[in-house]
Design a protein around this nucleic acid. Structure first.
Lengths: 203, 203
DNA sequence: GTCTATAATCAGATAGAC
DNA sequence: GTCTATCTGATTATAGAC
């Protein structure tokens, strides 16, 4: 069991390193040698743990999707059955951004390199993503059915725009005056209430 | 002048081919040999017109930014001085999407490969983009100052989210039930009015 | 201006010692 | 399980004929 634990540890170090480098440098920019360096070894040693760079990258993608979707679904479902569709959607938006900005390299790596994946891998990753995608779609459709969201907007278009917007923040966010929670709140407010909504009166 | 016109024509063919391939395959996926093929020649011939792949890519980026920004600024300024800040912002949103979905390979290429550009080139491209970025910022700030948009949203955050959302559509849009104009309208409605806005009554 | 070599480089992958 | 050494293949880029 000690041996197995160590083997798993090494695999994890390689995956972590790959996720971090994929996130920051993209697919072509992520050299095996650099991934290995981040894991404290040399490039050929990676092949003892993963059959190829593609296999390693695909594992990172799958973990990123799994972690992200489970985090969000758990947060939304914890609201319980009394939560309105709009509250559920708002919670999902906020969770998604907070998760991305919490520094999870895996989900940021997905957002960064997905478009560059080789055709076949992209299909598989997309398939793994689809249940998560459906979850978003259900949140959106439920809010429309409920009467709390605009039915004149196409649910698919809303989902595409919404996810693109949320995913983008890992590429431009830098810690500063606004923290992850504030960004998340602003995203929810922008998407749900719109930029043209007038603030409630002050003074 | 005939010679010059032909030389310019060839340059243009190479640039067009590069833009189309960069858009669809990303930076690493855009092989010089394929770009050349699209321009009706072989790879080494490109070097008669451009010093390197990087120089060619940078030209595509610069043209993409130039075309896109001039198109949008022209459409907005054509509204005249009587247009409210909110109308100007809405017009910019709609123009941006319509321009992207009109099939302009250059601006789509920018959205696709910007993050993967080598450090120095990205700085230069970003600098060229900055005046356009400022234009968006001004539109956003003007709507807030005018009282027609929420002051509780951070102008920078709104700009980042807004541009990410708009740029995304060239990667997922496929001609179908909804055309470019409808997508553009939905984007403007989603960003300005929000998803949670209730439709005006019908029946 | 475009071509046919071909060089130069670099990254992913393999072989085999330890 | 990790290393050194090496192979392979792909791609940018150059040299020089036409």
């Amino acid at each position: 069991m000690n041996r197995m634990a160590n083997a798993e540890n090494t695999r994890k170090r390689i995956l972590d390193s790959a996720a971090a480098i994929l996130r920051h440098k993209g697919l072509a920019g992520a050299k095996l040698s650099e991934i290995a360096e981040g894991a404290g070894m040399l490039a050929p040693s990676i092949y003892h743990h993963f059959g190829s760079k593609d296999i390693l990258v695909e594992k990172v993608m799958m973990e990123g999707i799994y972690n992200n979707s489970h985090h969000i679904v758990a947060r939304v479902e914890r609201l319980g059955p009394s939560a309105t569709p709009l509250v559920r959607l708002r919670t999902a938006i906020i969770s998604h951004i907070e998760f991305l900005l919490s520094g999870d390299d895996y989900s940021s790596a997905v957002a960064r390199v997905f478009d560059d994946l080789p055709e076949e891998m992209r299909r598989r990753v997309l398939a793994a993503y689809s249940s998560f995608d459906n979850y978003w779609r259900d949140l959106i459709v439920a809010a429309q059915a409920d009467g709390s969201a605009s039915k004149s907007l196409d649910a698919t278009v809303v989902r595409k725009f919404l996810i693109a917007m949320l995913d983008s923040c890992s590429s431009w966010y830098r810690p500063g005056k606004l923290g992850p929670s504030e960004i998340a709140e602003q995203a929810a407010s922008l998407l749900l209430d719109g930029f043209a909504s007038i603030d409630s009166e002050k003074t």
